[in-house]
Design a protein around this nucleic acid. Sequence first.
RNA 1: GGCGUGUUCGUCUAGUGGUCUAGGACGCUGGCCUCUCACGCCGGUAACACGGGUUCGAACCCCGUACACGCUACCA
Length: 507
Amino acid sequence: MLFFVNNLMLVLHPVKGIFMSHSDIPVRVRFAPSPTGYLHVGGARTAIYNYFFAKALQGTFYLRIEDTDQKRYNEEALQDLLKDLQWLGLNWDEGPGVNEKHGPYFQSQRLHLYAQHIQKLLDSGDAYYCFCTEERLQELRAEQEKSGASITGYDRHCRDISKEEAKNRIAQGEKAVIRFKVPKTGNTTFTDFIRGEISYQNELQDDLVLIKRDGFPTYHFASVVDDHLMQTSHVLRGDEWISSTPKHILLYKAFGWEPPVFCHLPVILAAGGGKLSKRKGAASVGDFRELGYLPEALVNFLALLGWNPGDEREVMSLEEMINSFSLDRINPKSVAFDEKKLKWMNGQHLHRCDHSVLLEALLDGLKKESIQTEDFNKEYHLKVVEMLKTRVSFLTDLAPMASYFYKKPSHFDEKAQKKNWGENSLSISKSVRNELKKLTDFNAVSIEKAFQQLAESSQIGLGKIVGVVRLAVSGVAGGPGLWEMFELLGQSEVLNRIENAESLMKS
RNA sequence: GGCGUGUUCGUCUAGUGGUCUAGGACGCUGGCCUCUCACGCCGGUAACACGGGUUCGAACCCCGUACACGCUACCA
């Protein structure tokens, strides 16, 4: 439940039952991915909100790896995950490799802690051994489905096996899981930070598994134990967890712990609705990196998918977003991922990003295309960047667009040839060459003057004249202002290229 | 099936009972700038899911319905 008093946001602490101003709670939040696949943009956004929230309130953002599913564990996915988070600029204050005072941060290395805690629940009678086989459970489920029963889930078959009997059976080597003893009556209610009060009937919850047959904890158990041990103040996670939250609350209660504040984040859907998947286009952080998106643009875009600063700003730096971030401005509804807007956003960031970033992308790209750059200095490259920056949507557009600044065009755009190299183009070309040859100081101003004079004396439109030689020099129909471009390329190179192309023009 | 969450232009959103003949952004579109292509600038397009209530008054509150999504695993 939220209140605003004199612009100060107050939070009803779920257990203490008192109102606390936000700044009174030492904020510790986590991003807790499971290393089973690439970092999906939905997961990235969850990480972003956690990070923003921590930074906005001078709290701690920690990273915890939920690797409790041995079958689905993927080492490569883990490495990608860490790399992607860093690329996005979401550096963790605590986590693998960083300030490990609440570690270890891999759940697979915390097994002793879960063992210790499950014992407490076993002792208090809040948990019990269940010897049911997978087959029995499957049959049970099939039956429930067939009969259309309204109450589904585990039938609590082993709930009343005495501790002694259970102990004996375990001693004899019988395999078991450990389940939580959910109260059979009553309701469990919690307050979601952005949705308000949510209530579930305990009767409808089944006795969830806490410890699996392989000895590993389930998500439910491990995350509750860890969130407590790691002193998590707020749990910001995907809204697929809403319906398990009452189980988590019940676990906190069984331990006698105060639950954190829960805040369930909406999901990101594909543009046409439905799940966002690789088949429907890029879906992971790595995909967007490869497409040439800037990390700050992706973060900005993702942050705005479900959140806004309360005014009309959209293109924002990381710092700006952190400074205006607050949880209560997150929308509860799921959103569609619109790549068109991301592309625009990327352009915005590209136009204002540091030239050194563009320079690096340019040189990288040229290298990949095996275009020689040794003959040109940094100043030259920067001028190319300056001329091209408003014309690119992606970092990866830069090099292909810049190739003619480094070598003669090897190909002339077909459509542009038809348009620009028709009747008279050869004579236009020759007269341009004639005029440019005369220039003793080959700069943008003098070049422009020469073109203006030629247009006037020949009674041919400036656009037409420019079109002929632009194509000859660059191989394409569009690009930076011709005068600046010619100045940078230099007189002899320009004259050379024009002359070379003349064999393809019509007289 | 049960339970839960959600629903404002095509998309992201503003909006917390009168200032909403619903504002902004992307997209699309008309124009300006101009040597081209972009950028930029100016304008246009288009929405309160539906039905009932409550109220002098509802996008905003309540109840239904529809639709979407999630959970219903010894996955997370």
